[in-house]
Nucleic acid binder design. Structure first.
Length: 260
DNA sequence: TAGGCCATCTGGTCCT
DNA sequence: AGGACCAGATGGCCTA
C-alpha cells in the first residue's frame, strides 16, 4: 500500500558501502529480507493505524479535513518507512563491520552488541596502527643501513638481503607476525577465554612486545561484558577491552575514557 | 524480575 | 519542500 514500502531493502543510503550478501552474519540480509517480506505490509499498515485514526470514508466523497488527514498519514508512513530503512542500512553496516572483526562468528556465539562492536573496532584499529608503527621501526632497524647490508653481503656472499632472517634472531614482533600468518582460517575460531588462556597461547615475547600486560588486564573491568561473548585468536593480538595495552599514549587514554 | 539490547515511531533540526 | 539525520519515548525479547 505504501508507495515507499517496496524499496525498503533495495537501496542503500550510503552508496560506497558494499555489503556482501553471501556472508553469514546474524541479522544481515537473509534474515532481514525475510523479515521485510513478512512484516512489510503489516508494519506500514499498523504503524498508521496505531497512532493516527484512519479515516474510512467508505467510498464516499472525502471532506477537506479527511484528505489532509490522509495526506498527513501517508507522509507519516513515508517518513517512518524511510527511517526504518535508514536504520536497517545502519544495521547492515554494523553487520559488515562485525564480519571483519576478529571475534568468533557462528550460531553458537552471541552477536556483539552495537556498542561493543564499535568499541572493539576502535580498539582493533588502534592496535593495528601501533603494530604497524612497530613493524616500520623493525624494518627500519633491520634494513635501515643499506650500506651496512651491502658491506655485510660483500664480506659474506652467502648472506643476501633477501634472507636476513636466517641469520638474525627473530624480532618478537616478527614472531607474532609469523604466528599470524601461520594461523589458518580454521584457527580463526576462538577457543580461549580471556585473558589468561589467551596469554598462554600468545608467545610471551610477542605478547609483551605488543604491549599486553597481564597483571593490569586482571585489574581491568569489562563494562561491555566482552569477555563473556568474545573469544580470542591464538597468536593474534586481541582488541578486546580486557586485553588493551596500557594507556601510555593520549589516544589510549581517550579510549579508556570512552569506556566510561 | 530487573536490566540490557534492540526496533520502531515520532518530532525536531539541518541541508540541498 | 523533501530528505537525511538525530535523539527521546516506548514496547518487546532475552538473559542472569
Amino acid at each position: 500500500m505504501d508507495s515507499d514500502s517496496g524499496s525498503i531493502c533495495s537501496r542503500s543510503s550510503s552508496p560506497d558501502l558494499v555489503v556482501d550478501d553471501s556472508a553469514g552474519s546474524f541479522f544481515s540480509n537473509k534474515m532481514f529480507q525475510t523479515y521485510c517480506q513478512e512484516n512489510r505490509a503489516d508494519d506500514d499498515e499498523e504503524a498508521g493505524r496505531g497512532r493516527t485514526e484512519r479515516c474510512s470514508g467508505g467510498g464516499k466523497t472525502k471532506s477537506r479535513s479527511e484528505v489532509n488527514n490522509n495526506e498527513g498519514q501517508d507522509l507519516r508512513l513515508k517518513v517512518n518507512s524511510r527511517e526504518r530503512k535508514r536504520m536497517h542500512d545502519l544495521n547492515q553496516a554494523m553487520d559488515s563491520l562485525r564480519e571483519v572483526m576478529p571475534y568468533a562468528q557462528g550460531p553458537s556465539v552471541r552477536k556483539l552488541s552495537k556498542i561493543s562492536t564499535l568499541m572493539l573496532a576502535r580498539n582493533y584499529i588502534l592496535m593495528l596502527s601501533s603494530s604497524l608503527e612497530e613493524m616500520k621501526k623493525l624494518v627500519g632497524d633491520i634494513y635501515g643501513g643499506g650500506a651496512a647490508i651491502q658491506s655485510r653481503t660483500a664480506a659474506h656472499p652467502a648472506i643476501t638481503p633477501a634472507a636476513p632472517a636466517a641469520h638474525l634472531p627473530l624480532h618478537p614482533l616478527a614472531q607474532s607476525l609469523h604466528s599470524l600468518v601461520a594461523s589458518t582460517p580454521s584457527g580463526l575460531q576462538h577457543h580461549a577465554p580471556c585473558p589468561a588462556a589467551a596469554q598462554a597461547l600468545h608467545s610471551p615475547p610477542s605478547a609483551a612486545f605488543l604491549g599486553f600486560h597481564a597483571s593490569v588486564q586482571g585489574l581491568l573491568k569489562d563494562p561491555l561484558h566482552l569477555a563473556s561473548t568474545y573469544r580470542h585468536f591464538p597468536g593474534m593480538p586481541c582488541p578486546c577491552s580486557l586485553c588493551q595495552p596500557l594507556p601510555t599514549t593520549t589516544s589510549t587514554l581517550h579510549s579508556l575514557s570512552m569506556i566510561k
